[in-house]
């Protein structure tokens, strides 16, 4: 196989890094080569975050180039629109429908575009929006949005869903075990709905 390129976008604090880790560990557990990369540091403070996961036989660069992503997972609609150009023609987008105000909007310096979802639908017709926050809340923790989003893309990954589930179990050993698995299952159900 060639390299399968995944881009995960979101807002600092939403757990983009942990979701990336789940996908990367799942690839390793499936016997594939993987590179994962995100920029952290200053961006974690509520800023826009983008993470790359590249899965395949022999992965070189840790960076996904614009126009080459097979899958874009966005934890927030505005961030989906911001990074939409990373998708290759025919690539898939799955995003969380719940908006989060950037600080520029929260302080009245800008307005949140009212037509984000329409613009996404126009540019990327096969995209799918998920109510990840309420699914995470039902699973027991609003912070489990990241696991809901991982669940929602399971059918689109070149990975066995059972392997991903095992990795989530392993990573959340000790705390949040039930919540994370429920959130993952909630995401899977939402993707199938």
């Amino acid at each position: 196989m060639g390299v399968f390129n995944i881009v995960i976008a979101g807002v600092g604090g939403q757990g983009v890094l942990l979701a990336s880790r789940v996908l990367a560990e799942s690839a390793l557990a499936s016997g594939m080569d993987v590179k994962q990369n995100e920029v952290h540091g200053m961006a974690q403070r509520g800023g826009s975050v983008i993470s790359f996961v590249r899965i395949g036989e022999d992965v070189r660069s840790p960076v996904v180039m614009p126009g080459t992503a097979d899958l874009l997972i966005s934890f927030e609609p505005l961030e989906a629109l911001r990074y939409l150009h990373y998708l290759k023609p025919g690539g898939r987008l799955v995003y969380n429908k719940v908006p989060l105000n950037p600080s520029t909007v929260a302080s009245g310096l800008a307005t949140y575009p009212p037509d984000v979802e329409e613009r996404i639908a126009r540019s990327c017709p096969g995209s799918r929006g998920i109510e990840a926050l309420s699914i995470a809340r039902d699973a027991g923790n609003v912070k489990a949005v990241n696991m809901v989003m991982v669940g929602s893309v399971l059918p689109n990954l070149p990975l066995d869903p059972r392997v991903v589930e095992e990795v989530v179990k392993e990573i959340s050993r000790g705390k949040g075990f039930d919540v994370n698995l429920k959130a993952l299952a909630g995401g899977v159900a939402a993707a199938g709905a």
Binding site: G12, G13, G46, G47, S48, L78, S103, T104, A110
Partner: peptide
């Protein structure tokens, strides 16, 4: 698109 710079928590 409105920018999303890092911000104080």
């Amino acid at each position: 698109l409105p920018q999303r710079p890092p911000t104080l928590c």
